[in-house]
Design a protein around this nucleic acid. Structure first.
Lengths: 143, 143
DNA sequence: GGAGATATGACGAAGATCGTACTATTCAAT
DNA sequence: ATTGAATAGTACGATCTTCGTCATATCTCC
């Protein structure tokens, strides 16, 4: 298989850099004090894995368990996350979103969706499928 | 223009999330204590804009000037960055990489390039041009 | 000259991450 | 049954980062 050209690599790098810089500050609507990135990712993971424990979150996000403990503290103090005792194992806690947490996750998800929609809207309908297919291939292809 | 489909948005979102998580921890080679993200971005910007000032860096990266001041302090202490007085304006400083800084930037750039190369290598040569073209269109198209 | 703008840094407050240590509980193997 | 190791979670403190406020020096423009 031929190698990617230098020109391709340079253009891809430039696009990624600009992308990362531009879509960093892209949110403001919501609570008075915005959530930091770890807290948002924690909320999103719990939304997709209700009943999971802090250790699951830590493993998934690649951070220390104590860091997740701090995050769940913050989120619980804000009333976005609930820590239930689980009956099968009295050491464990089951993480779960509160109503406010669900609302916030819905807003977050909507914001991401809007960003993705804007990105894809710059491509033609034919290109969209091609782009999504290629980025999927890049991300999920295992070597 | 038709809208992106929900399926397209969902797949794009899943790919982005996985991408961001996977390519976060992708570096370790180099100095004993790794640079944080701001310091790396500062170095890269200075490499591309020799003689620029801290204010330029702050504006480009979207952070407070005092934050850049801290970053240049750290980088100067490590011998990666030099702060020269400039003759035209005696308030200003001109940022410039040292030899070690150049070396580190070269390593960083090579690491990024390797990552981009691996990504593009998962596409066919024909797809590569299409992908780079589309992501460029997404990033640089102004609404 | 002098008012206001600009470039930069010093300093301290607030927050985030993480290593260490600790408690409580479960598991495993005798 | 007992006990030693493993596991789930957290409290605490150290360290680092970011940023707001303030101070200083310099420049610009009248």
């Amino acid at each position: 298989m031929t190698e990617p050209t230098d020109d391709q690599l340079a253009k891809l790098g430039a696009a990624f850099e600009t992308f990362a810089r531009r879509y960093k500050l892209a949110e403001s609507a919501g609570p008075e004090r915005p959530l930091n990135e770890l807290d948002k990712q924690t909320l999103l993971f719990v939304a997709n894995h209700p009943g999971c424990g802090p250790t699951d979150v830590a493993r998934f996000l690649g951070v220390a368990t104590t860091t997740v403990s701090s995050a769940t503290d913050r989120l619980a103090k804000r009333g976005l996350l609930a820590r239930d005792r689980v009956e099968g194992d009295r050491r464990a806690v089951a993480l779960r979103l509160t109503g406010d947490g669900e609302t916030l996750v819905a807003e977050l998800t909507a914001a991401y969706r809007a960003m993705y929609r804007m990105m894809l809207s710059r491509l033609s309908p034919t290109e969209r499928d091609a782009f999504v297919g290629m980025i999927t291939k890049i991300v999920y292809h295992e070597d």
